[in-house]
């Protein structure tokens, strides 16, 4: 297999008495899309927040590009975060700024070499890739949930990260927009050779985008493999239930 860009070993995280992650082992390889499935509240968002250093694990190791995240200095953490794109579950757009300024915000602060015209060009390009060129001058409050989600993804893509972390990119979207987003996730992988973790409840999304699928059960990964491996041979009842409820057939 290719080299691992993220290596997680025996990672645990609790909030008080709530043991969310209980010994997570996971690798993300270069250029793959890894889909993480799991019931609501199993700690999927917590896991990727630990990867970018928004939260710190209690025990275990988490290496990104070979470096343990929890021991990085501030400067190193900033450098690392430049290489990681994080698209939030609730989009987290800056609601005092227009769409253009939202996209300009990371660009103007991190890529100092670009002129105003170059930045504008780049903003137009990413907006086009998420299919929202017309929204450039709107405020986040004027956008629909799905549009916000796509702008949120555009804002992380604009820095051309090497790792993308998508937190439920298709939640609450219609099937056609879902397909557009899935295509976008694949297109990002193919064009920039980005490695991505895609958190989702949506098995269509998992099937379309996932090179590998991992299912989080009780704070550990219950099954990891290709979509077929995980679901066709699912011995674990709860994994099977996931499949059945999504496609209703059996």
């Amino acid at each position: 297999m290719a080299e691992a860009v993220i290596e997680i070993r025996k990672l645990t995280k609790s909030f008080g008495d709530l043991h969310v992650l209980r010994g997570v082992d996971l690798d993300l390889f270069k250029g793959e899309n890894l889909v993480v499935l799991g019931k609501s509240g199993t700690g999927k968002s917590v896991l990727i927040k630990i990867i970018v250093g928004l939260l710190t694990q209690d025990e275990g190791t988490l290496k990104v590009f070979g470096k343990e995240v929890s021991t990085l200095s501030n400067k190193e953490l900033l450098d690392l975060r430049l290489k990681i794109g994080f698209s939030f579950q609730n989009s987290a757009l800056y609601d005092s700024m227009s769409v253009r300024d939202n996209l300009d915000f990371p660009l103007i602060r991190n890529v100092k070499s670009l002129s105003k015209a170059q930045r504008d060009k780049k903003i137009e390009m990413v907006l086009e890739s998420v299919g929202l060129s017309q929204a450039i001058n709107q405020m986040p409050s004027e956008l629909s949930g799905g549009q916000r989600k796509r702008i949120g993804i555009a804002r992380t893509l604009i820095l051309e990260p090497e790792i993308m972390l998508y937190d439920e990119p298709t939640a609450g979207l219609d099937p056609i927009t879902c397909k557009d987003i899935n295509d976008l996730i694949n297109q990002v992988r193919d064009e920039y050779r980005t490695s991505s973790i895609v958190i989702t409840h949506d098995l269509t999304c998992a099937k379309d985008t996932g090179d590998r699928v991992a299912v989080l059960l009780d704070g550990q990964f219950g099954a990891v493999g290709t979509f077929e491996e995980v679901f066709k041979e699912a011995s674990e009842e709860r994994i099977q239930a996931f499949y059945d409820y999504n496609f209703i057939t059996k």
Binding site: L78, R81, P106, R109
Partner: peptide
Amino acid sequence: AEIASMKVSEQIDAMEVSAT
């Protein structure tokens, strides 16, 4: 109120992960 609502809606986290 403004900063608290930015915190609640994870906008502060979003700034942090975009290395600002």
